[in-house]
Simulated scan of single mutants.
Amino acid sequence: MANKITDMNKIRKVIKFHTEGKSKLFISRYLSLSRNTVKKYIALYESLSLSPEVLKSKTDSELETLFAYTKTEEISPKMQTLLKFFPGMERELSKVGVTIHHMWEKYISQNPDGFKASQFRHHFKIWSKDVKPVMHIKHK
């Protein structure tokens, strides 16, 4: 399945074999993963600049958060501003009478060159789907 998170034990093994100098082809065949999946997790590991010891000390849920929500591409400053706005917006939306449109009006008044209403709603919908599982894990 495309973009399905890989088992954390397999990710640990990918990193272990990579740090031992094994080839990506060997790793993909040994762990029954596609080469692109192996490349993806190696690239994410290298972009995070974590030592193997730090990686070993992380729990599976911490690793999943790191590898599931980390992107290798750069996020634009405009998008970073929007993503920083969403947590406060989510708290405000729990109040009576506050709507997503009201929050967009507040956002656009603070960021005149920001996203228009339809893109704002689209990105919030994606953000809320991505963040909700992590938030539930942290609250348990």
Rank of each mutant, 00 (worst) to 15 (best):
M1G: 11
M1H: 11
A2L: 12
N3G: 08
K4V: 13
I5A: 15
T6W: 02
D7P: 00
M8R: 07
M8P: 05
I11D: 00
I11Y: 04
I11Q: 05
I11W: 02
R12W: 05
V14L: 03
I15H: 01
K16M: 06
F17Y: 15
E20Y: 02
G21I: 02
K24Y: 08
L25E: 13
I27T: 00
I27P: 03
R29N: 08
R29W: 01
Y30P: 08
S34K: 10
R35A: 09
T37K: 04
T37L: 03
T37W: 02
K39L: 07
K40I: 02
Y41M: 05
I42H: 01
L44A: 06
Y45D: 03
L48K: 01
S49N: 14
S49E: 10
L50K: 07
P52Y: 02
E53T: 14
V54K: 10
L55W: 06
K56V: 15
S57Y: 12
K58C: 08
T59C: 05
T59Q: 02
S61M: 10
E62Y: 00
L63R: 00
T65A: 12
L66E: 04
L66R: 02
F67D: 01
A68H: 06
I75Y: 04
I75H: 03
I75C: 09
I75G: 04
P77Q: 07
K78C: 09
M79L: 13
T81L: 07
L82G: 04
L83N: 07
K84I: 09
F85R: 00
G88A: 14
E90N: 05
E90S: 11
L93R: 02
G97S: 09
G97A: 10
H101C: 14
H102Q: 12
M103A: 09
E105W: 02
K106C: 00
S109L: 13
S109V: 13
Q110I: 08
Q110G: 12
F115Q: 03
F115R: 05
S128F: 12
D130R: 15
D130W: 12
V131T: 11
K132Q: 15
K132W: 08
V134L: 07
M135Y: 03
H136Y: 14
